[in-house]
């Protein structure tokens, strides 16, 4: 599709919107519909679209496989780390009130925010990784 101009132009146009929407879904998640999982998938969809239009190599130049791996790990760590913080304060695992002991509601809010962010990052990374893996397979033959 590299040589077809309409998808190239439209794709370029949509890219920022898709990524922005992903972020919207991500951060809107604790108030309304949305959340880390959906956001991650939307974000990954953006990258997938890019790869479909500009080719796998181009996409891999933007989102390098090693970065994906790191993001995958960081996301999980973010999720689990948030839970662990509460342990250090002496609360139970995942007890977000620990994040801001004076204002429990704030703490909960922050906790969910961080956890969702972790989920979002991981899901996006894993989705991209899976796409890369399958897209790369055909080339080997």
């Amino acid at each position: 599709m590299k040589h077809q101009s309409i998808p190239r132009v439209v794709g370029k146009l949509f890219m920022p919107l898709i990524l922005l929407f992903a972020l919207y879904v991500q951060f809107h998640g604790d108030f309304g519909p949305g959340g880390g999982f959906q956001a991650g998938v939307i974000f990954a969809a953006g990258v997938v679209l890019y790869a479909l239009i500009f080719g796998l190599d181009a996409a891999k130049r933007i989102v390098r496989p090693r970065v994906i791996e790191i993001l995958f790990a960081v996301g999980v760590l973010l999720y689990a780390g948030t839970g662990l913080v509460s342990l250090f304060v002496g609360r139970n695992f995942l007890d977000y009130t620990a994040l801001d002991p004076d204002h429990p509601a704030h703490g909960q809010h922050l906790g969910i925010f961080l956890v969702e962010l972790g989920v979002g990052v991981t899901v996006a990374a894993v989705m991209i990784a899976i796409f890369f893996a399958f897209a790369g397979r055909r080339r080997l033959r």
Binding site: I70, V76, F93
Partner: peptide, 15 residues
């Protein structure tokens, strides 16, 4: 919880 979280967190750290 530590029993579960320790290996769970270590997995991404390995990566």
């Amino acid at each position: 919880i530590l029993l579960i979280v320790a290996p769970l967190v270590s997995a991404p750290l390995c990566v």
